[in-house]
């Protein structure tokens, strides 16, 4: 199981600003190890974020998103104390879901 995400969600004006830091290698599949063997691709393909059961962002990623990916987005209609849930799935089928309370 992958390490937990760091998620911060805070109300700024009438929007909720969500910042997510995920722990993932994001291996491109193009690099070679010291023995000259290609390191297989391993990267997050799908990301989704929900608030009160409603999807507030969904994303498809390729291997050229940086290692330990960072993501920021903003949505309206959220209040302090409510939860934002973020899920990612990688190309090996590994999955991770974390949540944060809006501050």
């Amino acid at each position: 199981m992958a390490d937990p995400m760091k998620i911060r969600a805070s109300v700024t004006g009438d929007k909720v600003v969500v910042k997510v830091l995920m722990a993932h290698e994001m291996e491109t599949g193009l690099r070679k190890d010291s023995a000259g063997k290609t390191i297989p691709a391993w990267f997050i393909q799908n990301v989704s974020a929900t608030h009160n059961g409603k999807t507030v962002l969904s994303a498809q990623w390729g291997p050229s998103v940086s290692k330990n990916p960072f993501l920021e987005f903003r949505f309206s209609g959220g209040k302090a104390g409510e939860k934002v849930i973020v899920t990612w799935t990688d190309n090996r089928g590994d999955k991770r879901t974390d949540e944060a309370t809006i501050a």
Partner: peptide, 13 residues
């Protein structure tokens, strides 16, 4: 989706 600002920020290679 509607309700989400048309803005994203990330980091790429």
């Amino acid at each position: 989706p509607g309700g989400t600002e048309p803005f994203v920020s990330t980091r790429v290679k």
